[in-house]
């Protein structure tokens, strides 16, 4: 089955990195087929940014996302742009501190993860994307936790592995808590 995941926010939040980590986890560490594509503005930092992952047991012909099953969103602008494009019955994982204005959406599951705040508590705002990845793993189970952790470890800068894995774990725990509530 083809699963489509879209990460969106602004350049500099690690949106593209999140997509690469997820796709590598599915492909290299879970033995599935996966492809990551991206779209960002020429300004790179601060501009609109999205990163898309397609995961499938079969060969992936078209690598772009057309109807995302999951949206992980970290900016108001990206939320406004993509929230209504999620597949009916799909999932949105959002950072409520970055997205103060939510729309009334029907037929989607919404998980609010204060990833930026959690990252700040860990001392590095820049790892908010990894907190979101942890939550993504817990609430969707699309890619298993251990594969994602391995992929986080190999895809983050040297010396930051422990910090990133802690961020992942915090996000995972927050996601599990949301599932139970």
């Amino acid at each position: 089955m083809r699963v489509e995941v879209r990460f969106a926010g602004f350049g500099g939040q690690g949106i593209i990195k999140s997509g690469i980590i997820t796709a590598a986890a599915a492909c290299i560490y879970s033995g599935k087929n996966a492809v990551q594509t991206q779209s960002y503005g020429p300004e790179s930092r601060g501009g609109a940014c999205k990163s898309e992952v397609v995961i499938s047991e079969e060969e992936i012909d078209f690598p772009k996302v057309t109807s995302p099953d999951v949206l992980i969103v970290m900016s108001q602008h990206a939320y406004n742009e993509y929230a209504e494009k999620v597949t009916p019955g799909g999932t949105i994982i959002l950072d409520p501190d970055m997205i103060p204005h939510e729309k009334k959406l029907k037929n989607v599951k919404i998980f609010r993860v204060p990833a930026t705040k959690i990252a700040e508590e860990l001392g590095r705002k820049i790892i908010a994307n990894i907190v979101m990845l942890g939550a993504f793993s817990a609430v969707t189970r699309i890619v298993d936790k251990e594969s994602l952790k391995k992929s986080v470890k190999t895809n983050v800068p040297k010396g930051t592995e422990e910090l990133n894995l802690t961020a992942f774990e915090k996000g995972y725990q927050y996601g599990e808590k949301l599932l139970k509530s």
């Binding site: 690469i20 087929n33 996966a34 492809v35 990551q36 594509t37 991206q38 690598p63």
Partner: peptide, 9 residues
């Protein structure tokens, strides 16, 4: 650009 920037196995 898609093929250049895309990540795959």
């Amino acid at each position: 650009e898609v093929v250049g920037h895309m990540w795959e196995k």
